[in-house]
Design a protein around this nucleic acid. Structure first.
Lengths: 168, 168
DNA sequence: GTAGCGTAGTTGAGCGCTTGACTATTCCGC
DNA sequence: GCGGAATAGTCAAGCGCTCAACTACGCTAC
């Protein structure tokens, strides 16, 4: 959780020139609060969604991305990128969604290497059933807890980090 | 990722009385930024730590928690709680750390049911080697990107959410 | 003391993810 | 057009997590 080996460990290993830039007490608190809360929130939302609908959050995201596209279909690679997923992971996930009849693969006319993932009507129906559960969780566990100023700060923070982490 | 089924889907399913409290555009942006950034940051830190040291972040946390205790040992249940881990998950993880020689189990004198997880010298050494890598990642990908005001906002946000999610 | 219940921790099956190797197709330069 | 590099996607092995069932011990009351 923390990044300090142990309080008062004295001398420490030194990877970057000048030694590790240890966190001070304030940074530790901020880091832990962020880490714990993000972990708990994600766990909670995923568990509630999965329990209520049988759809894990990662699969839900795939369905959402497909549903937001005009033709309800997308190239596998682009879908992977949008879901912050590796190609391999997405390939496995789409296989399982295919077994449920929610998505099907279609060969891509313009590129013989490519495939399209297509959201089926059953998949869209499953998404429609799951969405209210999920949005209610986000409300309850996130937005209901925050002031408008905190929501603004959250967005600012997230977008700042995204510029560094995902400069796409 | 998002919580809306599809823009302009019109009527939607209604689980809570009054219909789902959908997110408005601002909330969507905030939610997505938070979700993506936390996911990318966690993935990145975990990957860098694992590549450089062979220790996944979840295992690192176990070692840290043990190291911060005076005797470098802790009851399994308490360790699970502190690591935001289920008993089962922790049990599996400690088994693997035991195989590496970094932790060992010890019967608990006061409670015949209980076990203590004890950090070995090898485990402490592994932690000492990994800590600088991890702290450098947190610096680079988090604190170096943020102003002091943003750090304060992050802590405030995290602690607010924790009061709701983990009122322990 | 023993029945019944709660707590501590483990185990095994099954699922999902990661990694790295693999096939197939397209793109590029000559 | 043809050879080599890049791109799209898949697959298998191995690891870690979840869930539910299980063992073992302690606690309380009768």
């Amino acid at each position: 959780m923390t990044t300090q080996v142990s309080p008062g460990t004295g001398s420490a290993p030194e990877p970057p020139p000048g030694g590790p830039r240890w966190l001070d007490a304030e940074e530790q608190r901020a880091w832990r609060a962020w880490l714990y809360s993000s972990q708990l929130l994600n766990d909670r939302l995923d568990r509630e969604l999965t329990r209520a609908t049988g759809i894990p959050h990662a699969y839900y995201e795939i369905l959402v991305q497909l549903s937001e596209t005009p033709e309800r279909q997308m190239r596998m690679s682009e879908l992977a990128d949008r879901c912050l997923s590796s190609r391999s992971r997405l390939s496995h996930a789409v296989s399982r969604l295919e077994e449920r009849g929610w998505v099907r693969r279609q060969v891509c006319a313009e590129d013989g290497r490519g495939l399209l993932a297509v959201l089926t009507d059953e998949g869209f129906a499953a998404l429609e059933a799951a969405a209210p559960i999920h949005v209610e969780g986000v409300r309850t566990h996130l937005f209901d807890q925050l002031t408008p100023e905190q929501v603004a700060a959250m967005r600012d923070l997230g977008e700042t980090l995204l510029r560094h982490l995902d400069p796409s």
